[in-house]
Structures are given as structure tokens and as C-alpha cells.
């Protein structure tokens, strides 16, 4: 079964940017959002798994190191790094179209809007606890 991957004759024609050149695929050829399908190899998955494990150990370990105000930023930075690895490799965003990349960033952008615009109220309240 896995032999098929290695043979060259079932590869679709692609251009330099890995865009599909299959002419039976007219609407998609004209669609600039199109990117050919990639298979990420198990080696990559294993490496990412390793990175995530190291990140988990690091985040648990750093929690016991007294850093004062920096504990929270460090924890969030590690979590963000781990999330980025999952998104890029496990979720294939690194190999996906610009559209998917834009979609992912739109989600986080809107979440930031929710946080920032609400915080604008909370941090500036005369009667607040901030």
C-alpha cells in the first residue's frame, strides 16, 4: 500500500510554489488560494511530539521557580509556543493555503479584540480593582 507514495508516476504536476497544475482542475487552477496536498512524515510528528513534551516539562518546572511577576508571561509564552507547533505541524497550517493561515489568525485577532476592548473598560474604571 505505502509503495504508491514512493513512485513518481502518481504525483500530480505542480509548479514551483507547489500549486496544482492539473488541467482537469480548471476552477482550482484559477483559484489563487489553492495549494496542493502534502503528507507530513511521521519523523516530523515525532519531533513535534518531543518538542511538546519538553515544553510540558518546562512549563511545569518553571512554575516552581520564583520569578515574581514573570511567572505568568513565561507560562503563557511556553503555552503559545506549544500551540504554534501544534497548529503548524499537527494541523498542517505550515503546508496550507494563505486562506487557512488567514482564518487562523482572524480567530486569534478577534479574540484579542474581545480582550483588549473589554480590558479598556476594566483598567480605566474609577471604582475598579485593577
Amino acid at each position: 500500500m505505502s509503495d504508491q507514495v514512493k513512485t513518481n508516476n502518481n504525483l500530480k504536476p505542480v509548479d514551483a510554489d507547489q500549486g496544482n497544475l492539473d488541467m482537469h482542475d480548471a476552477p482550482n487552477v484559477m483559484n489563487p488560494e489553492h495549494v496542493a496536498h502534502h503528507i507530513v512524515s511521521p519523523t516530523v510528528y515525532l519531533m513535534i511530539f518531543g518538542v511538546l513534551m519538553v515544553g510540558t516539562a518546562l512549563t511545569a518546572g518553571m512554575a516552581y521557580v520564583p520569578l515574581g511577576a514573570f511567572n505568568a508571561p513565561v507560562a503563557i509564552a511556553i503555552a503559545c509556543t506549544k500551540a504554534v507547533f501544534v497548529v503548524l505541524f499537527f494541523m498542517h497550517v505550515k503546508y496550507s493555503s494563505k486562506l487557512v493561515k488567514l482564518t487562523v489568525s482572524a480567530g486569534f485577532f478577534t479574540f484579542l479584540v474581545l480582550c483588549m476592548m473589554s480590558l479598556l473598560d476594566y483598567v480605566s474604571r474609577a471604582w475598579g480593582r485593577w
Binding site: T59, Y64, A79, K82, V86
Partner: peptide
């Protein structure tokens, strides 16, 4: 969960 773990379990463990 990657976010929940440090936010809920590890606020200030030392």
C-alpha cells in the same frame, strides 16, 4: 488544554 494546564494548575506553585 495546553493553555488550560498552566492557567489553572500552575498559577503560583512555589
Amino acid at each position: 488544554w495546553i493553555f488550560l494546564f498552566p492557567l489553572l494548575y500552575l498559577i503560583n506553585r512555589h
